[in-house]
Design a binder for these strands. Structure first.
Lengths: 202, 202
DNA sequence: ACAGCATACGGAACGTTGTTCCGTTTAGCA
DNA sequence: TGCTAAACGGAACAACGTTCCGTATGCTGT
């Protein structure tokens, strides 16, 4: 369920909220994303409210439980990331550049996840199906970008989107000291653009 | 840095504490173990202090950080479990019964671990080497029990101690709804006593 | 334009937990 | 038995989650 309700002739009640409510919800999602990157998913509620410029009551009105907020942020990020793909392709840059930029956004998203992975492991029931949603939504987008790059001769054709996403995801695991995930991903993408059988450069 | 200060020629200073201090430390370890099973490793400090019958200050004196307490409990449990092995063998019961009882203690210990596994994953530096300690200490004990049972013809000889421990450990993962780990372990141990090549009963 | 109202907001207030600090108690020793 | 350092207990403070309600404001009908 939850499929978009922009159609409704008698407008979907969920969308019929007051404008400030909609605005604040967006602000909260953005703020929570920022704070989660900086302080992890256990960051104080007050911090998130402050960064969003709203009161504490407001955040509880929109997201009664922390799990709800985390999920909402996660899905919001996935949606934003998915929407960015076509936009980048349409922006006129080369497919290769579009792909690179998009992967960059994807890494942003992965970093945002921070402690979420740990929670996913620890079996909280609320997080069922999140990863599935993540794949369903992002793999096709990546596939489009990838195909465009391949068609333009700017990427080797023997790499699948799901494979690429997984590789990038794995590169972003376990960061911290002495490890720059973003750099490694950069190498990966650079390699993707290089000819398949080229010998290692001097 | 931080290496113990056992320099003193007279008896090790660490052991030369006041008797109440030693007693309280033991009480705290026991209390923490109990509370951890009931409420997980994030249980309130006050609960642990209360169950141990000491003040809050005392628990902080002995274990300034929660990680320290968790580690201490963990090692204490491992030590207790290791010590129980020879004791059970010497108690006069059949080797098979001794092994079964010991496995039971081992499962108790595993259950105590509760949320600790999640923490181990989430890369807190403080927990390095715990698992190693666990194996080093427990595998030999299990091996002794196993050999005794095999020698008495009460266990099949083609199972290694480390293997058995790991199997039991795995059986204890992911409990909760519709899954009784202890029952499964019981089956495993029963199977261990059965003849190696016997056809399925029934 | 305006009034009425349901919706949404803000933040004080409360309960819980982690952590510190210091006056009091007590074990160990001469 | 008296002294002292070690250890104890818990009040006090800080940070956080959560609730609650008076206030502000976007919407709708007139």
């Amino acid at each position: 369920m939850t499929e978009a309700g922009q159609d409704a002739s008698p407008p979907s009640p969920a969308q019929r909220r007051r404008s400030d409510a909609r605005r604040n919800e967006q602000a909260l999602l953005a703020a929570a994303a920022e704070v989660f990157v900086r302080s992890g998913v256990d960051a104080p509620v007050r911090d998130i409210a402050a960064r969003a410029g709203v009161g504490i009551g407001t955040i509880y009105r929109h997201f009664p439980t922390r799990a709800g907020l985390i999920i909402a942020v996660y899905r919001h990020q996935v949606d934003e990331c998915a929407a960015a793909g076509p936009a980048l392709l349409a922006a006129g840059e080369s497919p290769r550049a579009a792909l690179a930029r998009w992967i960059d956004l994807f890494v942003d998203f992965l970093v945002t996840k921070h402690g979420l992975a740990a929670r996913l492991q620890s079996g909280e029931a609320s997080f069922e199906g999140l990863h599935e949603y993540f794949l369903d939504r992002l793999v096709p987008v990546c596939d489009d970008l990838l195909r465009a790059a391949v068609a333009a001769g700017q990427a080797r054709p023997d790499v699948a989107a799901a494979e690429l996403l997984r590789a990038v995801g794995n590169l972003c695991i376990g960061g911290g000291r002495r490890y720059d995930a973003r750099l490694m991903v950069g190498l990966l993408i650079a390699g993707l653009a290089a000819p398949p059988a080229g010998p290692a450069p001097g």
